[in-house]
Nucleic acid binder design. Structure first.
Lengths: 328, 328
DNA sequence: CTGTTAGCGCTTTCAG
DNA sequence: CTGAAAGCGCTAACAG
């Protein structure tokens, strides 16, 4: 029973009124008698009627109350905590954040971004790993509010909240050098914008660190990749005594490699994580403050939503990550 | 320019054809001449036309290709890894997973669940913390595929993938007892179904553990709550030597309390986490295998989507969590 | 307080 | 190969 969608007309018929009265009741609008209202409410309940958000959205030309957020993956702690923080702020502005993950696939990222906007979401938070965003020009022209997170918009003008990845990497190497390490390694990756910025930062800093030697190993962004990179560093002669890992997963893998090697190696992790202070020895970290990023991002997004048509100047916020020196 | 939504009619006009031909081209359907097709494609490009997913969905009565997933929060590692695993599987079935988090608020959870279904998603994965799901009856009657994760459907029949939380807690206490601990504590919470099941399991097991003494402390599910609970246990006389933490956040907080107290305490964590094996001493864990859960959940969901109208029997899959004994 | 009309953007159906 | 008509469910705008 009730296999077919129950429409507003079914309710109207059951309550012996017009669809308009039902609509008014549904939306809590005045202009319906107490009796009638009651009959309608009963009919709604009876039939299990749910207004089709699709029809409403279609009618209004947009889906009110929702913004989209696209992240590369749901599981890295940074993305998930950022997502949670942003979600909270958007929620307290009375909106719903709808998320999807691109699975680190640019094609999927694009179709999600377009899809969300086509579904009538008026705002989009885009944690992009794509290197061209020109395809979003039409939706920007149409006044959609798009905020880039973590990596800058390419070939398109839009507000963004960025992190100074290079500076973070420089700080991290500085700490290792200050702590007396002379053989330093960087376990990194070129797979994403963030990762390669960090590696680039490390490369830039190398010159200033003499007499310390810095070697860079790149690998895929997985714990396994980190483990292999760590093993290869530690098994070779002249193994490093200090390592910067440019990503959480690489940190975990490298830490396992260090444990298995039995050596004492100091690690700095780009991206802090819950248990960094609990490890022995504690792991120092470059922390991208999720609060700060979430705060800026949600503010920019909400501003963009309000802005309506006037195209405000495009804001870029760059956050300098903090070095959390632990141990020693 | 292009402030207003570009519609299929604008494209049709620009290309000097009817809307139907544009529609055919858009959907890759045959029956359009090469020349015409080309003109239309150019006009689409020119105008930056994007078909309104809202209009299409409305027309078809549903939003094809998407399923919804609701999680309590995006940041706990278990939810985020589960979300990522499920997303992957749904994606390889050619569908998109759209996520939202309830912020641990039952009201929000309901409106999201209804909202997703009202938006025309045909499937919903619900990681619920609500204790009544009768409100979903109408959508189930209408043939929506809803799969419950982690906690059972209440007052409604729907497939679910559950974890035997009690058994996990029993296993964990068993490990501590086997390892010779005679003063054991449980840091838990009654705030959610999962948490209270675990505490209940621990209470059940207490009798069988004599001569060990087991005390239970409940607190809020945050690292701070775990820290406070840990401190209160460790500062009191007869402090426990083994602690079961029934939730990741509680584990982190308790571990900090242990570190600060300078004591040696063995911890078992309900829910494994990346760095559990890297801590000193290593932290044993009760692991809810995200792969297994994701596998079952996505399968049930996809089955439900295919099922159409025939209401198959309602499947409940219960997964027995694994004890990962570490150290010692 | 209540109802009628019209149309949002798209696609199905049926004619040419 | 192409187009005209009709309608999906809902709500503004306008009667009554």
């Amino acid at each position: 029973m009730a296999r077919d969608r129950v429409t507003i007309n079914d309710v109207a018929r059951a309550a012996n009124v017009s669809a308009m009265s039902v609509s008014r009741v549904l939306n809590g609008r005045p202009g319906v008698g107490k009796q009638t209202r009651k009959r309608i409410e009963e009919a709604v309940e009876e039939l299990g009627f749910r207004p089709s958000a699709l029809a409403v959205g279609f009618r209004q030309g947009r889906l009110l109350g929702s913004v989209g957020m696209i992240i590369p993956r749901a599981d890295p702690p940074l993305f998930s905590s950022l997502a949670a923080e942003i979600d909270e702020r958007i929620a307290s502005a009375g909106l719903t954040t709808v998320m999807a993950s691109s699975g680190r696939n640019a094609e999927r990222e694009r179709s999600l971004a377009r899809g969300f906007l086509a579904m009538g979401f008026e705002g989009l938070l885009l944690f992009s790993e794509d290197d061209d965003h020109a395809y979003l020009q039409p939706e920007l022209d149409r006044g959609k509010s798009i905020v880039f997170l973590g990596s800058p918009p390419r070939n398109v003008r839009a507000p963004s909240v960025l992190v100074d990845n290079r500076a973070g990497a420089v700080d991290a190497l500085g700490l290792l050098a200050r702590r007396g390490h002379r053989r330093i390694a960087v376990v990194g990756s070129e797979a994403t914008y963030q990762a390669s910025e960090r590696v680039a930062g490390a490369r830039e800093a190398m010159g200033d660190l003499a007499p310390a030697e810095v070697q860079v190993v790149t690998t895929e962004i997985t714990t396994e990749g980190g483990y292999r990179a760590g093993r290869s560093l530690l098994d070779a002669p002249g193994a490093p005594t200090g390592i910067l890992c440019t990503n959480y997963l690489l940190t975990v893998g490298t830490l396992r490699a260090i444990r298995d090697s039995g050596r004492h190696v100091e690690v700095v992790s780009f991206d802090d994580f819950d248990t960094a202070d609990l490890l022995t020895p504690p792991v120092s970290a470059i922390s991208q403050d999720p609060h700060a990023i979430a705060e800026q991002a949600s503010q920019l997004l909400l501003q963009g939503l309000d802005a309506g048509d006037r195209d405000a100047q495009v804001t870029t916020v760059t956050i300098h990550p903090r070095l959390l020196a632990r141990g020693a």
